[in-house]
Write a protein that binds this DNA or RNA. Structure first.
Length: 805
RNA sequence: GCGGGCGUGGCGGAAUGGUAGACGCGUGGGACUUAGGAUCCCAUGGGGACACCCGUGAGAGUUCGAAUCUCUCCGCCCGCACCA
């Protein structure tokens, strides 16, 4: 053993040895106790591995290493999510083809991930940009297409007037184009959708049984946003055969509906508009179409115009005016609302601004029937509502729905905030959507045996500004023959959303390289669903929801036995630096290479884990890392100095410390409290350093406990301790509950809740004995009033509380 | 606005009804040393008339006992955001 701790050479040495011996590869077919340890594969940016990646992967890797030492056959794969707009935009900026760029980035990432010391099964790595991968992404699309889950229809999409191109939702940053900062507008275009809303109820209801971080489940529930209510039909005053359907969660307030509001895009707008209102309505509709999303959504100020048309409230029989306003969204519900200004804040604002009547139809607490000065949105008791009068809100809702259904003027209805998944992108850098358009046969899926539809290797991948993918400009790609009739046909030129690539990558890992199937049924049955998935909160809704949907659909199509892909998901926190979020613009981004170089990967790993509870995140301080570096140095020298000292015996205290530490570290790792696990090891080390000669069992225990955190150092120590390779395949140490019991304990004595003395007493004393000891203490006696009647509360081996009042 | 999380020394953080501040950083002192920004040891919440008092964002409550539970308020962070 070297006299100084030299992380660089130790880490290089073991990384090489691990690779040569393949300790992190698993025999997927024959593994006895499979454990699939997943983390979110990175997007390989040109900047290299971000410290946020290092944080995420280290925490997940520690979990995997711990499970492996617990005897599990841990499969911990890694891959690269390299399609998508980030790569494409960067490539455009640099004028380098994304393919070239990505290859370099991937190589750099692989090298950094290796330096990090993850226990990755590299033989199963996947890259989403590899035709052997995206062939199967296209295959999934085809399955969905055949099942009717993938459909092409018109939809409003984000449009950047300056770049003259369609933008993905992810490219719109608070209403502005990511690249040129121009305000984004809406355009109606033909797009491909996955009908995720059909799965809304299952996606929502399954959450109850998933072992996932509560934050993520809550975010998904809100995103799906199920709301129950009714659809009610308001006939037009001029022509009762036509009706305006509205969705409401408060059918009980229908007697207070004093006007209707339609979204400007609503198809009945033209019909309702009278000749004298036409100019104004047209102008408003046009303006709304051109307004940016931010303008439309962000502003609190409500605008709208009267159409001149009237509809009939089917409950009261009264005519109500119909307005259009852009605070009503065309994409939600029916695109029309019944406005109840008395009991909805937005309708109240609108009614106040345009002088519309505000009625009170729900009495407030204490039978409050006074005139409203603000919308009363709480539940109450129905009033001025004909048959519903006197009913509390929940019952009134039910009564209203029943009555609507009886009279056939409406019915119970459920709506979701969740929208269908728009998956087509008018871009170059993604898997081409595998369909062709034939004049005779219509939209035809590419036959599976013809997959992949290769992304053509072109020089010019810059969007043309026509609203079409750059692929549309390549005749050799576009022009093809119909697989059905062999007549001339045109290929789809859109590519699929990057989120589709990442919605199934974990299904591919075990079956990577399989040329015949996307995922092998036997391997899939053996390894999935995933045992542990750890990742960031930022993917709470998009990735994690799309992934669940894809699995559910594949399950229904008969390809999977399970519908939920991840048994357990844990969201880790964010790592900040000196209290501030890391960002390029602040110039405070931690570059892991610098720290690998200066301290080694083990120090960086352990330090990141030490900064705070893993699920809450931590604060990276440039000075703080020294503490962990010192700790690893001390461990190194402790082992080195004690190697030659044989036969040291552990004192009872030391033995207890050892077992206590094993317990604390074990429990903390399981709870992802890596910071306190390290603190426990530091205390252990402090205890060991007080010994003249440290028993070999303690050196071994400390090395094993530290192994998941500092895999290289501990491998070196394990070898020095003359133990068989590899420390990472050695069983996790166990503790003996009997040894944990201390012989003497500190019992705290309180008088009237204040701490007055601490007594060193033999463990297991009964209350009477503890009382006697406590009353014998001067420090306690001083606070006991003469002749007071005393009451005692005794917590064995911990505390005696004396009450004098 | 809605939803979620958080507020503890100079700093990161421990303690989820029972010894507040574990562990680490920083700081002060000491040892070793030609020297050290290396290493080791000691101290380190505030006050003090030093056998004591105060102290976990503020205020109230429950309890023998509250950082922890309850209510009200203040502040910060993260989602979603005119979703009817």
């Amino acid at each position: 053993m070297n006299t100084t701790y030299d992380p660089k050479s130790i880490e290089r040495k073991w990384q090489q040895r691990w690779q040569e011996t393949g300790v992190y590869e698993v025999d997927l077919e024959h593994a006895k106790d499979p454990y699939y340890n997943l983390m979110m594969f990175p997007y390989p940016s040109a900047e290299g591995l971000h410290v946020g990646n290092v944080y995420a992967f280290t925490g997940a890797d520690i979990h995997g290493r711990y499970q492996a030492m617990r005897g599990k056959n841990v499969f911990e794969p890694m891959g690269f999510d390299a399609f998508g707009i980030h790569s494409e935009n960067f490539a455009i900026k640099r004028g380098i083809h994304p393919k070239t760029l990505i290859a370099g980035n991937v190589a750099h990432f692989r090298e950094q991930l290796t330096r990090l010391g993850g226990r990755f099964a590299w033989s199963h790595a996947v890259e989403t940009t590899d035709p052997d991968y995206y062939r199967w992404t296209q295959w999934i699309f085809l399955q969905f297409f055949r099942a009717g889950l993938a459909q092409r229809r018109k939809a409003p999409v984000n449009w950047c007037p300056s770049c003259k191109t369609v933008l993905a939702n992810e490219q719109v940053i608070s209403g502005h184009c990511e690249r040129c900062d121009t305000e984004v507008t809406q355009r109606e275009l033909e797009q491909w959708f996955f009908d995720i809303t059909r799965y809304a109820d299952r996606l929502l209801d399954n959450l109850d049984d998933l072992d996932w971080s509560e934050v993520i489940k809550t975010a998904q529930r809100n995103w799906i946003g199920r709301s129950d209510g009714a659809q009610l039909r308001f006939p037009l005053a001029r022509d009762a055969t036509k009706t305006i359907s509205v969705f409401t969660t408060r059918p009980d307030t229908v007697y207070g509906a004093t006007f209707l509001v339609l979204a400007p895009e609503h198809p009945l707008v033209a019909e309702l508009t009278t000749a004298e209102r036409k100019a104004e309505v047209d102008a408003y509709v046009r303006a709304a179409a051109e307004r940016s999303q931010e303008d439309r959504m962000g502003g609190q100020d409500k605008t709208g115009v009267f159409t001149g048309g009237y509809a009939v409230n089917p409950f009261t029989g009264k005519e109500v005016p119909v307005y259009i306003a852009d605070y009503v969204l065309y994409g939600y519900g029916t695109g029309a609302i019944m406005a109840v200004p008395g009991h909805d804040a937005r309708d109240f604002d609108f009614a106040t601004k345009y002088g519309l009547p505000i009625l009170r139809v729900v009495a407030g607490p204490g039978d409050d029937r006074t005139t409203l000065t603000a919308a009363y949105t709480e539940p109450g008791v129905a009033m001025a509502s004909g048959p519903f009068d006197g009913l509390p809100t929940p019952e009134a809702k039910e009564a209203a729905i029943r009555l609507a259904e009886e009279r056939q003027i409406g019915e119970r209805h459920r709506t979701y905030h969740l929208r269908n998944w728009l998956i087509s992108r008018q871009r170059y850098w993604g898997p081409p959507i595998p369909v062709v358009y034939c004049e005779k046969c219509g939209i035809v899926g590419v036959p599976e045996e013809d997959l992949p539809v290769l992304l053509p290797d072109v020089q010019d991948f810059v969007p043309k500004g026509t609203g079409e993918s750059p692929l549309a400009a390549i005749p050799s790609f576009v022009e093809t023959t119909c697989p059905n009739c062999h007549g001339p046909a045109r290929r789809e030129t859109d590519v699929s959303d990057n989120f589709l690539d990442s919605a199934w990558y974990f299904l591919r890992y075990p079956s990577s390289g399989d040329a015949r199937k996307a995922f092998d049924p036997d391997l899939t049955r053996k390894w999935l669903p995933v045992d542990s998935y750890i990742g960031g909160k930022e993917h709470a809704v998009l990735h994690l929801l799309y992934t669940r949907f894809v699995c559910m659909a594949l399950h229904d199509l008969g390809y999977l036995d399970f519908e939920e892909p991840f048994k357990r998901f844990r969201a880790h926190g964010m790592i900040v630096r000196n209290g501030a979020k890391m960002s390029k613009s602040r110039g405070n981004v931690v570059n892991p290479d610098e720290f690998f170089e200066r301290y080694g990967a083990d120090t960086l790993r352990a330090y990141l884990m030490f900064t705070g509870p893993y699920e809450e995140g931590g604060d990276f301080s440039d000075q703080g890392i020294e503490g962990i570096y010192r700790f690893l140095n001390r461990v190194y020298h402790l082992v080195r100095k004690n190697l030659g000292l044989s036969g040291a015996e552990a004192s009872p205290d030391l033995l207890r410390l050892r077992h206590q530490t094993i317990r604390r570290v074990t429990e903390d790792i399981e709870a992802l409290k890596y910071n306190t696990a390290l603190a426990a090891m530091m205390e252990y080390l402090n205890g060991l350093q007080r010994e003249n000669a440290v028993p070999r069992d303690d050196l071994k225990a400390l090395t094993l406990l530290l192994a998941p955190f500092a895999p290289h150092l501990t491998e070196e120590l394990w070898q020095a301790l003359d133990q068989p390779y590899s420390v990472h395949q050695t069983p996790w140490p166990t503790f003996d509950a009997d040894v944990l019991v201390a012989k003497t304990v500190t019992v705290v004595v309180q008088v009237d809740g204040k701490l007055r003395d601490r007594l060193q007493l033999p463990a297991g004393l009964d209350e009477a004995a503890v009382r006697e000891a406590a009353l014998g203490s001067d420090a306690v006696q001083r606070f006991l009033p003469e002749g007071a009647a005393l009451r005692f509360v005794h917590v064995p081996d911990r505390l005696l509380s004396i009450v004098t009042r």
